[in-house]
Every structure is written in structure tokens, then in C-alpha cells.
């Protein structure tokens, strides 16, 4: 009995040591991707116009994902930086709006590894956004500044498969802001009052699903071509708000293409392949 117990303790200790070493090592595996894409945008901001402006959009997306030591090494950290610019026109094609936005999202996902092919990830996110919409025709309300941030929930499904020995990885991710804050001038307030006269007002509003129901979704497919890991994807970015009696939305649909780099952080070893049980992706 004593020998059995001693053996059990030994195995447990060994496993613990292994997992710590494994955890330490897994944090050095990084997946980075850079995507560029184009699509369509639908922009509404009732501070500028009650009409929806539509037109082309370009977007870049940089993603970085690696495992952490949290919860036994089962949590991955994801940084996503996006920048987009759209050139849109009103329905009658008589006025133009230029929209530029940047966003940074940090997410921690607990990884549920269901089998060798399928992973489901879920966890909290922090999302920060900033930008500007400019209308070329307006007088004292020519532009609207956009600045908002939130914490939310993110879910991801990663499925790895092979078609005739050709490896493919499909990923779907959705990110939903739940609680946050947003800058907005008041309903009929000019930026002249805010910045030149320095008048106060309710310029920061609490946001949640009731007044800012937004959703970001990505669908990507990874596939190797020679020594490169290519990625194609579709981004559906729905950003909406109704604060200070002003309605706004930016609906973006973009098709993206780029490449992925999986590497080990030690110098000179960035060609090391990532085993299934340690890879963040």
C-alpha cells in the first residue's frame, strides 16, 4: 500500500513538473498573422446625417496569439489590431463621408480541446476603438470623433482537417462587447462649444447591449503554400450605438488575405513546428 502510494505521489510530481515545463515552453509558441482586405461599409451617424452612406472600405488586421500560464496553461492570449478606412456616399451620391477607425482587442480564451481536430475557446475581451467620420458638405458639424472601449465576451472555434493530406485550419470567432464607455457630443452640441468654449456636458456615456449592440466576427481558413502559411478570411464588423439621442453604426464586410507565422520565440528556432497540445491556435 505504502509503495503504491509512493509511486502515485511520484507520478503526480512528475506530471506536475512536466506540466510546468510544458506550460513554460508553450508560452513561447506564438501565432502571428497579417491580413489585408477590402469590402463594403455602411456608415450612419445622425450627428452628421440621417442617411446611410455606403461605399468601399479597406482594412488591415494584425493578430498575435500565444498561450499563457493561467489556469494550468489552458488560457491563450490574443491581441488583434485593426485599422480600416472607408469612402462612402449618400444614396443620392451628392455627398461623401470618409471614415477612419482603429481598434485594439485583447482577449484571454480558455481552450477546450475536444479532440485533436477541434478546439473551442471562450473568454473575456478588452476592446478599444478610436477614429473619425468626416462629411465633406456639413457646416458646423463636419465631423464626428469616435472613441469607445468595452469589456466583453469572445468565443472561437478552431477546426483542423485534412483533404487528401493537405492540412487546413478553419476558425470562426465572435466578439461581443458587454460593458463599456463611449465619447459623444450631446445631441445638438458643436465641437466649438466643447473645445473652443470648453463647455461641459454628458460627453462620456455608459454603454452596454441596450445602447451599443455590436459584434465582430471573423471566419478564416489557413492553408500552406510551399513554405508559407496563407490565410484567407471574412470579417463582419458590426459597430452600433445610440447615446445622447444620436444614432450611429458602421457595418463592415471585408474579405481578407494574408499570411500566418507560427514560431517559437527563441532566436533561430522559429521554424519549430507546434505540437497540438501546446499550440495556441
Amino acid at each position: 500500500m505504502k509503495r503504491t502510494f509512493a509511486l502515485f505521489i511520484l507520478i503526480l510530481s512528475w506530471c506536475n513538473v512536466f506540466s510546468q515545463e510544458d506550460s513554460l515552453r508553450t508560452t513561447r509558441y506564438v501565432m502571428r498573422s497579417f491580413l489585408i482586405g477590402t469590402g463594403r461599409a455602411n456608415v450612419l451617424d445622425t450627428y452628421l446625417s440621417p442617411l446611410e452612406y455606403k461605399g468601399p472600405e479597406v482594412r488591415v488586421l494584425f493578430e498575435n496569439m500565444r498561450m499563457t500560464r493561467l489556469m494550468g496553461g489552458n488560457v491563450s492570449a490574443q491581441h488583434v489590431f485593426q485599422a480600416d478606412f472607408s469612402y462612402t456616399k449618400n444614396p443620392a451620391q451628392t455627398a461623401r463621408m470618409y471614415t477612419g477607425m482603429v481598434s485594439w482587442t485583447y482577449a484571454l480564451h480558455y481552450q477546450f480541446r475536444l479532440n485533436e481536430r477541434l478546439k473551442i475557446l471562450a473568454g473575456p475581451t478588452l476592446d478599444l476603438n478610436g477614429g473619425c467620420i468626416y462629411n465633406n458638405r456639413n457646416s458646423n458639424n463636419p465631423a464626428q470623433a469616435k472613441a469607445y472601449g468595452s469589456i466583453g465576451a469572445s468565443g472561437m472555434v478552431i477546426y483542423k482537417m485534412r483533404i487528401k493530406d493537405y492540412p487546413l485550419t478553419v476558425r470562426y470567432q465572435a466578439s461581443l462587447p458587454l460593458l463599456g464607455a463611449m465619447f459623444s457630443p450631446e445631441y445638438g452640441e458643436s465641437y466649438y462649444e466643447i473645445f473652443s468654449l470648453k463647455h461641459g456636458g454628458k460627453h462620456v456615456s455608459f454603454t452596454s447591449l441596450h445602447n451599443s449592440p455590436s459584434l465582430r466576427q471573423w471566419l478564416t481558413l489557413d492553408f500552406p503554400i510551399r513554405q508559407f502559411n496563407m490565410r484567407i478570411g471574412y470579417v463582419c464588423d458590426i459597430q452600433q450605438a445610440k447615446v445622447n439621442n444620436l444614432k450611429s453604426h458602421i457595418y463592415s464586410h471585408n474579405f481578407m488575405i494574408g499570411f500566418v507565422r507560427n514560431f517559437y520565440i527563441l532566436k533561430g528556432k522559429n521554424r519549430i513546428s507546434m505540437p497540438h497540445n501546446v499550440t495556441p491556435y
Partner: peptide
Amino acid sequence: FSSEIPNGWSIRFSAS
């Protein structure tokens, strides 16, 4: 301030 109507005509009006 400025705004517009569906046919693309713009309207300027006193806001503040």
C-alpha cells in the same frame, strides 16, 4: 448645423 434629405438636398439650420 447641416443635415440632408433622401434626395440628397442639404439643409442648413440653426442648432444652438
